[in-house]
Computed example of a mutant assay.
Amino acid sequence: MNLQQLKHDWTKEEILDIYNKPLMELVYTAASVHREWHKPDEVQISTLLSVKTGGCPEDCSYCGQAARYHTNIKVQALLPTETVLAHAATAQANGSTRFCMAAAWREVRDNKDFDRIIEMVKGVNEMGMEVCCTLGMLTESQAQRLQEAGLYAYNHNIDTSEEYYDEIISTRKFDNRLETINNVRKAGITVCSGGIIGLGETSEDRISMLRTLANMEKHPESVPINALARVKGTPLEDNPKVDIWEMVRMIATARIVMPASMVRLSAGRIEMTEAEQAWCFMAGANSIFTGERQTLLVTPNPGISEDMQMLQRLGLKPMVKERENAC
């Protein structure tokens, strides 16, 4: 990979021109870029576990874990360390090379719960897996503690465009997202950051979100593209299902503007057919979340057996060893 080829000064017009290409041309271009930077038959299998569920004080309109919304999601305290490590061992045996732990916190606090997270990170790291966490806002010193424990990646999505952000979340600002990402970078941890489509945003909002990511001094090593998982009881429960071709366009555009990054096909797969997921892989997605519980945090997700069968039918294989700069 020649990192000098990466562009960090995209204009909205440039990205919009890519996004609006005729679909077949867009997918062909993205697939060509994908082959220049990655092995096209490899897909990274990652497992995401909710280690602390629900009761979050934030008001993210899409999230069923917000305490203020009346959903059927059961609040769960921080899991015991041994339980989490057992899940990680199962995930590794099923082919996952990355294990991500998520806690429904607004921000990390320097307390006993964070000490337990540190122990979890150390334990998963000792297994030889990439360790990822998503814990909310993070200070530079907290990021440093995680790095010293062996954390490989930190997930902190920007969700949507800066312009549309206040329509979705009022309990924090867009700049808070960027500050946490900067703290992660300073600590030497790789960044996993993407967004959600289907929130009611415009195409211009989607392009603005991608531009924020693509114009970072260093592109996120992993860029999750999520389709809104409509959770009953949240303000966005009645939003329409995301059209598959909109998902394909987002993945293809992300692949072209951030060619070295892993583009992760994330939330929303449960509502996609196998053929629709194949289009996403063709457009440059090379990472998925799977899980033994058939959930992605608190929403339905295909199970590991189903995913492995799909990959086999598509002539794809799980990524065995991570390449440098991969996330």
Score class of each variant (00 low, 15 high):
73 I>V: 14
139 T>F: 04
94 N>I: 04
243 D>A: 12
77 A>S: 15
60 C>D: 04
197 I>P: 03
58 E>W: 00
160 T>M: 05
296 L>T: 05
280 C>M: 13
125 N>E: 11
274 E>Q: 13
133 C>N: 09
169 I>F: 01
256 I>C: 03
132 C>M: 07
232 K>H: 11
3 L>Q: 08
12 K>C: 03
15 I>D: 00
30 A>K: 08
82 E>R: 14
237 E>Y: 08
81 T>N: 13
47 T>W: 08
53 T>V: 12
279 W>I: 07
324 E>P: 02
102 A>Q: 14
28 Y>V: 10
166 D>I: 03
195 G>E: 05
204 E>S: 12
8 H>C: 04
227 A>C: 11
99 F>A: 11
219 H>K: 00
124 V>H: 14
205 D>I: 00
172 R>A: 04
313 R>I: 00
82 E>N: 13
209 M>G: 02
128 G>K: 10
67 A>N: 13
94 N>K: 11
34 H>Y: 13
256 I>N: 00
125 N>P: 00
43 V>Y: 06
190 T>Y: 06
82 E>Y: 13
60 C>P: 01
250 M>T: 14
224 P>I: 02
157 N>G: 00
131 V>P: 11
76 Q>G: 07
297 L>A: 07
4 Q>R: 09
117 I>L: 15
1 M>C: 06
91 A>E: 14
23 L>C: 11
138 L>P: 07
239 N>I: 01
322 E>K: 14
102 A>Y: 10
52 K>R: 14
276 E>G: 11
253 T>Y: 03
219 H>M: 01
273 T>F: 06
126 E>G: 10
217 E>I: 02
74 K>Q: 15
243 D>Y: 03
52 K>P: 08
20 N>D: 12
187 A>Q: 06
236 L>R: 06
28 Y>P: 00
45 I>S: 07
294 Q>E: 15
286 N>V: 06
40 P>F: 04
202 T>C: 09
218 K>Q: 13
222 S>V: 03
291 G>P: 09
